[in-house]
Simulated scan of single mutants.
Amino acid sequence: FPWRTRAPLWKAIFRVITAPVTSPIFFHIYVADVFTSMVKVFQDIMWTLCFVISGDFLLPENLDENDAPHPWQHAFWYKNVVIPLICLFPLWIRFNQCLRRYMDTHKRWPNLANAFKYALSQTVTLFGAFHPLYLLHVHKGNRPDQPSNENGINLFQTFWMGLFITSSLYSFLWDVYMDWGLGRPRFAFLGPRLMFPRQLHYYGVMVIDLVLRSMWV
C-alpha cells in the first residue's frame, strides 16, 4: 500500500470518522454511505481478528463434538457489545455528518430529516442488540407481569415491530424521493427527468428497494 497513492483515501477516512468535528464534503458523505453498506464486511474483519488473536487458527480441524470451536463468538462481549457497535458506527458517522451539515448551512431540510433517518436506524439496531437479552430475561424469570396491555399484547414487542416498520418505510421513501428524485405524483410517481426510456424499470427498482428494505421480516 504505497502511501503516496493511498494517502488521500486514508485522509478522507480520517475526516469521515472524526465527524462532526470536520465539515463533510460530498466525497466524505459518499465514503460514509459506503461504510453503511459494508457492515457485514466489518463484522467479518472483526471475526477474523478474534479468530487470529484467540489462536483458534492453530486448533485442529477434527475437534470433538464436546469442544465447541470459537467460544468467543458466543460470548456476551462479542454478540451484545462488539457486533452492535460495528453496526452502529457507520450510522453514527452519517448521523454526525448530517448534524454538521445543519450547523454549517443552517438548513433544517434535508439535513435534520436525514439525521432523523439515521437516528431511527440506530434505535432499531440497539433494540435488535438488546432484544435477545430481553427474551432471555423473560424466559429465565418466567414472569407473567411483563409489560402488556389488557389484551395480553406485549408492549415491548409491539413497539419494536412498529419501530422496524417506521424505519424501513422512512428509509424507503427517502431513497425514492430524495436520493433518486422519484415519487412525484404529477409525473406518475416518477421524476421530471428520466435517463432510461422505459418507465417500467423505475417502478421495478422501487418495488425491489421496498422488498430489500423489508428483508428483516
Score class of each variant (00 low, 15 high):
F172V: 01
F172M: 04
S148A: 14
W174L: 04
S168M: 11
Y170H: 11
N154R: 07
Q157N: 14
I165F: 13
L155F: 08
V176C: 00
G152T: 07
G141R: 03
W174P: 00
G162F: 01
D179F: 01
F159Y: 14
W160Q: 12
T158G: 08
Q157A: 10
V176L: 00
F172D: 05
N151I: 07
L155D: 13
D179T: 00
S168Q: 12
D145W: 09
Q157E: 15
I153M: 11
G162N: 07
S148F: 06
N149E: 05
N149R: 05
E150K: 10
N154G: 08
F164T: 07
W174E: 03
L173I: 04
I153Q: 07
F164L: 06
G162A: 03
S168T: 05
G141E: 12
F164P: 04
W160M: 11
N154P: 08
Q146T: 12
Y170N: 07
G141L: 09
T166V: 02
T166H: 06
S148K: 14
L173E: 11
N151H: 13
Y177P: 02
D175H: 00
N149G: 13
Q146A: 14
M178L: 14
P147E: 04
I165V: 14
F164Y: 14
Q157F: 14
W174D: 01
S171D: 09
G141S: 13
I153G: 03
L173N: 03
Y177I: 09
W174Y: 09
T158I: 03
P144Y: 15
R143D: 15
D145Y: 08
F172G: 02
F159Q: 07
M178G: 03
I153S: 11
I153L: 10
N149H: 10
I165A: 09
Q146M: 13
V176M: 00
D179E: 10
G152Q: 03
